[in-house]
Computed example of a mutant assay.
Amino acid sequence: MGASQSKSEEKVFTTETPISFSPDVVDRLAANVTSSEVPAERQLTLDGHVRARIQAEMARLRKEEEEVRAKIEAALEKENLDREKTLATDGDVKDSASLLNDLEEIKAKVERFQERKALVDYPELKGIQEKVLACYRNQPTRTLDCWREVNQFKVAVDQLEQKFVKSLQ
Rank of each mutant, 00 (worst) to 15 (best):
M1G: 06
A3D: 09
S6N: 12
E9P: 04
V12N: 13
T17A: 14
S22M: 08
P23Y: 07
D24E: 15
L29T: 07
A30V: 05
A31T: 08
N32L: 15
V33S: 00
V33R: 04
T34H: 04
E37A: 09
V38I: 11
A40S: 12
E41I: 11
R42A: 11
L44C: 13
G48Q: 14
H49M: 14
V50S: 12
I54P: 05
Q55T: 02
Q55G: 01
E57D: 09
A59L: 10
R60Y: 04
L61W: 02
R62F: 01
E65L: 12
E67A: 09
R69P: 01
I72K: 06
L76R: 10
E77M: 02
E79P: 00
N80V: 07
T86L: 08
L87P: 04
A88S: 11
T89A: 12
T89S: 11
G91I: 00
D92V: 09
K94M: 10
S96K: 06
A97E: 05
D102E: 10
L103M: 04
L103T: 10
E104W: 06
E104N: 10
K107Y: 04
A108T: 12
E111L: 14
E111A: 08
R112P: 09
R116D: 13
L119Y: 10
L119C: 15
L119V: 15
V120K: 09
V120P: 03
P123Q: 09
E124T: 14
E124G: 13
G127I: 04
G127R: 08
I128T: 07
L133D: 11
L133A: 05
Y136S: 02
Q139I: 02
T141N: 06
R142M: 08
T143I: 07
E149T: 01
V150W: 02
N151M: 05
F153A: 02
K154V: 07
V155F: 01
L160W: 06
F164H: 13
V165R: 10
K166T: 15
L168N: 02
L168H: 03
